[in-house]
């Protein structure tokens, strides 16, 4: 069966959920092969096989982790040249998209980013202009390179062989120009990453001041959710820019998106409109966010949110 390459996104070898989603998606298009780049492949192989990887290409040379993007594109280009897959699927994360772009240049192939689905014939579905249009597009030259947003497919196990194939890589000098000197983690607590999370709870201007984000964090923790913030909130310095959802920040597409004290200007909608279920709490009944919601509460978030958190905790403990 035709081989579909899936680039593994991982943390020290542990595959991220989006990787399992892409393997699941790849099974509907051909035979998935995982491409693992970096250290820690031994931690990943069983999981990759469990979710359907017939082969696992491993490029684990020592210094790959010291560089960003460019070496990954080189490794992928090398594998594509050797095995001629029918497509390459890559997680639609900032780094994933950049890898896809560089790979497209190397292969002179078309690249499609931010797909929310891929159908027969590698037709990618996208949602553009803040969700105003649904677009289908395809690659007409070279090997289709498609980046797929996290949470686009529900990951389902389907055990396969997961046969390991070592790939030896000689990086070009060009790929080694930008060197990582240090990696700094600023994330607080053990919350999931914003773009990967199944549930995102975001706070906005209605919170009034930064310290009130504690309400959002408490609600998020009761659901095991990630915390997001509107641009108004990050502009005011209430929450880090890393957590900004919207046109100039992160794009999220979780199962559940909760907008708390966010009016829902187009700026914000562009970053969350493809969420599966949307709920909002806002005191202004005219707030545009209510046009998007499955369930909305018009009211004071300082009353509604603590009651909601308490109710959720009560249900979890009962």
């Amino acid at each position: 069966m035709a081989e579909v390459l899936v680039l593994v996104e991982h943390v020290d070898g542990a595959p991220k959920k989006v990787t399992l989603e892409l393997l699941t998606l790849a099974r509907s298009l051909g035979e998935p092969s995982a491409v693992f780049i970096g250290n820690g492949a031994d931690n990943a192989k069983a999981k990759l096989a469990e979710y359907g990887a017939a082969k696992v290409y491993v490029a684990g040379d020592g210094d790959l982790d010291s560089y960003l993007v460019a070496p990954k594109a080189e490794v992928l280009a090398q594998i594509v040249g050797a095995v001629s897959p029918v497509a390459v699927l890559i997680p639609s994360t900032p780094e994933g998209k950049e890898v896809a772009g560089r790979l497209a240049v190397k292969l002179d192939s078309g690249v499609i980013t931010d797909a929310v689905g891929v159908d027969d014939g590698f037709v990618a579905r996208q949602s553009i202009f803040g969700g105003a249009f649904n677009v289908s597009s395809s690659v007409n030259r070279g090997t289709p390179i498609i980046t797929v947003r996290p949470n686009s497919t529900a990951p389902e196990p389907a055990p396969a062989a997961g046969a390991e194939e070592q790939v030896s890589v000689t990086l070009s000098d060009a790929a080694k120009k930008a060197k990582v000197l240090d990696r700094i983690t600023e994330k607080k607590g053990g919350r999931p990453e914003l773009t990967e999370a199944a549930i995102v709870v975001s706070g906005g201007r209605g919170l009034g001041e930064g310290s009130n984000f504690a309400l959002i964090e408490k609600l998020a923790d009761s659901l095991g959710a990630a915390v997001g913030a509107s641009r108004a909130a990050t502009d005011a310095g209430w929450y880090p820019h890393t957590n900004q959802v919207g046109q100039t920040g992160k794009t999220v597409s979780p199962q559940l998106y909760m907008a708390i004290g966010i009016s829902g200007a187009i700026q914000h909608r562009a970053g969350m409109q493809t969420s599966k279920t949307i709920v909002a709490v806002n005191k202004d009944p005219e707030a545009p966010i209510f046009e998007l919601v499955d369930f909305g509460v018009v009211g004071d978030l300082f009353n509604v949110v603590p009651q909601l958190t308490e109710e959720i905790e009560k249900r979890h403990s009962s």
Binding site: A104, D108, S109, G110, V111, I112, V123, S127, G131, A132, F133, N134, V135, S136, S137, S138, V139, N140, R141, G142, I278, V281, P285, F290, E291, L292, V293, D294, F295, G296, V297, V298, G299, D300, N303, V304, Q307, L308
Partner: peptide, 25 residues
């Protein structure tokens, strides 16, 4: 190297349920 096959305005979302907080929101 890419071709847009089809474009469709997103169908309007079905109106959700909106409740006013009366102490039980």
């Amino acid at each position: 190297a890419t071709t847009v096959a089809d474009v469709a305005a997103r169908p309007p979302k079905q109106a959700g349920q909106i409740v006013k907080d009366e102490g039980d929101g």
